[in-house]
Computed example of a mutant assay.
Amino acid sequence: MNIHTETNSQQILKPKNNFYNFIINPFSFFNNMLSNPKVMLPLLIMFIANVLFSFTSADLLYQGNNYINDSFIQNNRTIFMVLTVGISVISNLTTLIFSCLFLYFIGMIFFDNISYKTIFSFVLFSQIPQYINLFILTAKNLITQEITEQIQNPTLLDSIGTQVNPFNIWHLFLLGVAIHTMTKMSKTKSFIIILILPILNISLPQILTNIF
């Protein structure tokens, strides 16, 4: 009787995993999700964000680009837009799957009891700030009627500016929380590992530009 009472009390005291908890206390959010990682909700958010952004970008591209103002393309514009959106969504999903697979194999070498589903779920949730940014960029496409394009041959300041923005910083913070939660490494070590990512993202474009 006492065992059931204690179990019920623990369930009542356990904080709910909702968006408020995700924002205010991500450490608690990810820790609560260890026993039952969720995939469908962040996957749906990723899907909607990518579809909306790629659709609005493709629509503006086929409207205003003289290089593709071809009669064949214009007559089959709907098909090309569906293909563009499909390729964008599939490529993003494929990248995510293989990135998590790589992390899973690394985790198998250094850590115990980390499932692929947990990694996939935690990485998806850590990318929610990026998906929120995509919603904002979609709105910008619709308001300005101009495509948000990536900078070609970015300078060092361009690369730094890309990394040092609120959504990317939030994403990296959540990724650090996810690594800390999954591996039980200290918070300091987890965030040091995460700091490698923006350093690589800043330095690699400069190295490749100088080489090619």
Rank of each mutant, 00 (worst) to 15 (best):
Ile199Trp: 05
Thr188Leu: 15
His4Ala: 00
Asn92Asp: 11
Leu137Glu: 13
Ile12Leu: 14
Asn18Pro: 00
Asp70Phe: 06
Asn50Asp: 15
Phe102His: 02
Met81Phe: 05
Ala139Trp: 12
Asn201Arg: 01
Ile136Phe: 13
Met1Lys: 03
Thr138His: 12
Thr78Arg: 06
Asn201Leu: 12
Phe120Met: 14
Ala49Trp: 02
Glu146Asn: 12
Gly107Ile: 06
Ser203Asp: 04
Ile169Asn: 02
Ile192Arg: 09
Gln127Met: 03
Thr94Ile: 12
Val89Leu: 14
Val85Phe: 08
Ile109Pro: 11
Phe102Ala: 15
Phe173Gly: 10
Phe125Arg: 04
Val177Trp: 01
Ser71Lys: 09
Phe29Tyr: 14
Asn153Lys: 06
Ala178Asn: 10
Leu175His: 00
Asn65Lys: 12
Lys140Gly: 03
Ser126His: 03
Asn66His: 07
Phe135Gly: 04
Val51His: 00
Met182Lys: 00
Gln11Ser: 00
Thr5Glu: 08
Gln74Leu: 12
Leu124Thr: 04
Thr7Val: 10
Val85Trp: 04
Ile202Leu: 01
Trp170His: 05
Ile73Met: 08
Pro15Ser: 10
Ser71Asn: 15
Asn201Phe: 13
Leu172Lys: 02
Met46Tyr: 03
Tyr20Asn: 15
Ile160Glu: 07
Leu172Phe: 14
Met46Asn: 11
Pro26Glu: 10
Leu83His: 06
Leu41Trp: 13
Leu134Gly: 01
Asn66Lys: 09
Pro37Tyr: 03
Cys100Trp: 01
Tyr104Phe: 15
Ile24Phe: 13
Ile194Pro: 01
Asn17Cys: 11
Asn141Ala: 04
Asn18Met: 00
Asn168Val: 14
Tyr116Ser: 15
Phe173Glu: 01
Lys117Ser: 08
Leu204Asn: 04
Ser91Arg: 12
Lys14Val: 12
Leu124Met: 09
Pro129Gln: 09
Ile79Gly: 06
Asn113Ile: 08
Ser57Pro: 07
Asn2Cys: 01
